[in-house]
Design a protein around this nucleic acid. Sequence first.
DNA 1: AAGTGGACCTGCTAGC
DNA 2: TGCTAGCAGGTCCACT
Length: 271
Amino acid sequence: MPELPEVEVTRRSFAERIAGARVTAVRLGKPLRWPLGVDPQELVAQRVGPVTRRGKYLWLALERGGLLLHLGMSGSLAFGARLGTPGPHDHFDLVTQRGTLRLTDPRRFGAVVWSPAPHEGAASKLLGGLGVEPFDDAFTGAHLHAALRGRRVSIKEALLGGRIVVGAGNIYACEALFEAGIDPRTPGGRVSRARCDLLAAALRRTLLRALQTGGSTLRDFRDTHGAAGEFQREARVYGRAGQPCVRCGATIRRVVQGQRATFYCPGCQKR
DNA sequence: AAGTGGACCTGCTAGC
DNA sequence: TGCTAGCAGGTCCACT
């Protein structure tokens, strides 16, 4: 589930409760995408500071550095005083006085990495090349247009890449392109300035709406069926191949771009 | 520099 | 009912 809205909702769910708590223990499960990068004992006795977000990454500040967290494709975070015995997919526990922050991630594409600061060490390498935040004033049609100049990759893959703007995953990239009426296969450099304006606004609107209803998509996070149900209710093209477009009635199509599924309406979305 | 394809890993579903 | 192929919300890395 974790695209930007889900990551942000997750952050808000525990940031204030964990801030100020002292780490009392760390438990590691199976390996995640990268090694932690520090002796877990080093984390013990450090006090937790603010939890912030950059793209789909979370930065959990500690006194002598911090942890960069990523949920990958299937990760979720829970924070509570009584989480119970770790299950087979619980791969990281940060135990504090006020409760345990637990990363559950069946596919283990997620990560927890120690770094001395967000702009140093391992974190800087991962965060360094990221594009602008979609809710930042710097994210405009002009920015999009400039960043896309000369690019041959499709507009959809450019959005997913995260080097121009962060936060759009496969679902919201598809949805935003639908909102903007742009064919996802259009080469990035061929999207006009006017349509970049439309797209920037559409992406911001799509992510904001998801953020506002994000609680509901996250509530059933552990229940695959419930989550799928929520998405289907919200999505206008994603996962709707073969069904009629809600706007024009044309049949929604599924194509593959960069080994990922893309859904679009051939009636509403043009090059 | 930009584009392409492979890699990581497990669980679920559709189809036989 | 059981097996298998195909698919999944991410993104880094090696190679051309």
